[in-house]
């Protein structure tokens, strides 16, 4: 349902994506791993049009992603995003954060949206925090609210941009747990992450990106357990055995 065909992207003179071709099927969980600055996040941000791309084509459910076209709203309501730094709206309550999109973008009936919002907060284990404001929550709780906000849009896929990188280590598990449950329920997910355990256990497929190209890809277990390319081997060795 998400197709990338020879996508190129430069920031000024630096080419960060040098021809990315990949696809994500419905119901699939794809993890993107690789060193910092390799272009992982940029790929995600191109998929929902937060960044433009210079060459190639990205499409979601057959709809071309073009951030300057009106159709981008349709893409974004179908593909939600969870950010590294949560980006919850601090001036609104937790529940208001969750229902903001359905209410004001999709213009769904209020009572129905509120009910769904509360149910989603229950699903991420934060039903009792509905009326709190985000700054009163821990990072892990905020990220779970952000996941509920993404789900409230009833998206066909969710993009996760290093969702646990800004969290205290003891809070990572709660967020990964929620994500694992989503994956089990059949949600299509693209996850940029440094959590190799999560990638190995939950992902169907792993893409290893370095220097703006896909160096290696395949089923999660084979890429992470028996990497073929020396750069993948080197990266995984550093990540898994840093000492």
């Amino acid at each position: 349902m998400i197709e990338l065909d020879d996508v190129h992207k430069s920031f000024g003179k630096v080419e960060v994506l040098k021809g990315i071709t990949a696809s994500v099927q419905k119901g699939e969980v794809v993890c993107i791993v690789g060193p910092s600055g390799s272009g992982k996040s940029t790929i995600l941000r191109c998929i929902n049009g937060l960044e433009s791309y210079d060459r190639g084509e990205i499409s979601v459910e057959g709809l071309k992603v073009d951030r300057d076209a009106p159709s981008i709203v349709k893409v974004r309501t179908q593909v939600s995003m969870v950010f590294q730094r949560f980006n919850l709206f601090p001036h609104r309550t937790v529940l208001e954060n969750v229902v903001e999109g359905p209410l004001f973008v999709k213009k769904e009936p209020r009572a129905q949206v509120l009910e769904r919002g509360r149910a989603l907060l229950g699903q991420v284990g934060l039903a009792e925090k509905a009326d709190a404001h985000p700054p009163q929550l821990s990072g892990g709780q905020q990220q779970r609210v952000a996941i509920a906000r993404a789900l409230a849009m009833q998206p066909k896929a969710i993009l996760f941009d290093e969702p646990t990188s800004a969290l205290d280590p003891e809070l990572v598990g709660d967020v990964l747990g929620v994500m694992r449950k989503l994956a089990d329920d059949g949600m299509t997910m693209v996850v940029v992450t440094h959590e190799m355990g999560f990638a190995r256990d939950v992902a169907d497929r792993v893409l290893f990106i370095d220097g703006g190209v896909i160096v290696e890809q395949g089923p999660a277990k084979s890429v992470l357990n028996q990497p073929q390319h020396p750069r993948t081997q080197d990266f995984l060795r550093r990540v898994l055995h840093p000492l």
Partner: peptide, 10 residues
């Protein structure tokens, strides 16, 4: 990030 979050929900 606030603006991006808003854009990401359409």
């Amino acid at each position: 990030g606030q603006i991006e979050a808003a854009q990401s929900i359409g």
